[in-house]
Amino acid sequence: MNEAEAQTVRHIFKRYCELKSVHALERELRDAGILSKYWTSLRGKVMEGLPFSRSALFHLLRNPVYLGLIRLKQEVHEGEHRAILEQELFDKVQPQLDAQARRHRAGPNRRVVRYPLTGKLFDANGEHMTPSFSRGSKGKHYRNYVSASLQQGPKSAAGITQRVPASEIENLVREFASRVSNAKKRPLDKVTSVHLHYDRIQIDLASDALNGTPSKLESGETIVFENKQVTRFAIAISLPKRGGQRTIVPSQIRKPRIDKTLVASLRKAHQMLKMQKGLPLVKRAPASLHESKILRMAFLAPDIQRDIMKGLQPPSLNLQRLKQVHVPLCWDEQRSALGWVETAAP
């Protein structure tokens, strides 16, 4: 048990009992500089502590793991870890959360809003994009899908769209699914996942909803993968901003745009290598951090290097962004990190 983190959890429970408001608790924790814990992802990336969001606090205050229990679906089981909370304190919090939820549902302006892409929409980093509902200064309501990490505070990664208007993405996916499938009623039910990139959207449709190979594809729409379960489509789009909101506009297939700086850097990367028994080895050590980052380009997937030479890289990709992005060795992970259309099976 990490005692410092356990003390933070106890403090959050005690303060909520006193404040009786998650919104007030969120503000107090933010002002006090109390952050979530640091952790390391499976890829070895260190994630810094972030301010607690309201959704994170609701989840924390409902989580039985602090009582030494484990929740599996709808059931709760005894865990093998120590409890860090007293049952009395946990039980005291739950009725207050229930009462707060009832007040929220009974509010005079409460609206029931559906988000049909919940659980299906992902950004280019593979993060879930979750529903977000807000009201403007003039009382206008806004529905969006927002990346999970953006709700917790960090800045958007370069070239990654982390917020989109809900109605526009839903209408685009609904129209496409209705046009190419045999599902004329509730076509979104046949959509298994949607991945949003800066210059395209990838839509996975259940293959049994298609009448053979779709023949109603329009300019900018292609099939990138298909099997008996799923058919993956890519639709070229653009995301111009309008009035602070991103507007999704289907676009034509983009023309090649050769980035001379990228091409020159790729060639320089290969000049620093030599081949020995079919394996690349460094022939000349990089003279600077800049050259070290350029050298990584020689280890990009062959199709990524080919697209750079032909000018078919994503519009958001340039040398500056390439130097900032962590480029994994796995080719499939490279395509996801840099925004290439995935061709591997789902």
Rank of each mutant, 00 (worst) to 15 (best):
L97R: 00
N144E: 12
P116Y: 05
E86L: 08
R111D: 10
N144T: 07
T192L: 09
S181P: 02
S137V: 09
V194I: 09
Q94Y: 00
F176N: 02
H104L: 10
S132L: 12
V164Q: 07
V93L: 06
D189Q: 11
A83G: 03
Y66K: 01
R103F: 04
S167P: 12
K185S: 14
S137E: 15
S181M: 04
T161C: 14
P95M: 07
I169G: 07
L121S: 03
Y66V: 02
S178A: 07
L121E: 06
V76A: 04
A148W: 13
K140L: 06
Q100S: 11
V180S: 02
V112T: 15
D189L: 12
N109A: 12
N109V: 03
K73N: 11
E170Y: 02
G79F: 04
A166S: 05
Y142W: 07
D189A: 10
R186F: 15
N171P: 02
G139T: 01
A166T: 02
S181A: 04
K138E: 11
L69W: 03
A177K: 00
H77W: 14
T192W: 03
K184H: 12
N182D: 14
Q151M: 15
V65W: 02
A124S: 15
F122M: 14
S134Y: 04
K73W: 06
R103M: 09
Q151P: 02
R163D: 11
F122N: 10
Y66N: 02
A99G: 11
N182V: 12
R186P: 05
L85P: 05
A99F: 13
L72R: 10
M129C: 06
A101P: 00
V164H: 06
L69I: 01
R105E: 10
K185Y: 15
L67T: 03
I160C: 09
E75I: 02
A106F: 06
R114T: 13
S167I: 13
Y66F: 07
P154N: 13
V112S: 15
P154D: 14
T192Q: 09
A101G: 00
Y115S: 03
V93N: 05
L172N: 08
K185E: 15
V180T: 05
L67P: 00
R102N: 04
A183H: 12
P116N: 04
S156Q: 15
L188M: 04
L72Y: 07
R163F: 05
S132F: 13
H128V: 11
V93Q: 05
Q100D: 12
D91F: 00
P187I: 04
N182P: 00
D189T: 11
H141P: 01
H81F: 08
L72H: 08
E175I: 01
L172E: 11
K190A: 14
V191E: 03
Q96I: 15
G79A: 15
T118F: 10
E168V: 09
H77S: 09
L67Y: 01
N182K: 13
P187K: 03
A158D: 14
A158L: 14
L121H: 03
S147V: 05
R110E: 13
G153C: 08
A124G: 14
G119W: 13
L172Q: 09
S193Y: 11
S167H: 13
G159I: 08
T130A: 14
R186A: 13
I160V: 14
A183D: 10
A83K: 06
P108F: 04
L89I: 15
P95L: 06
S149N: 13
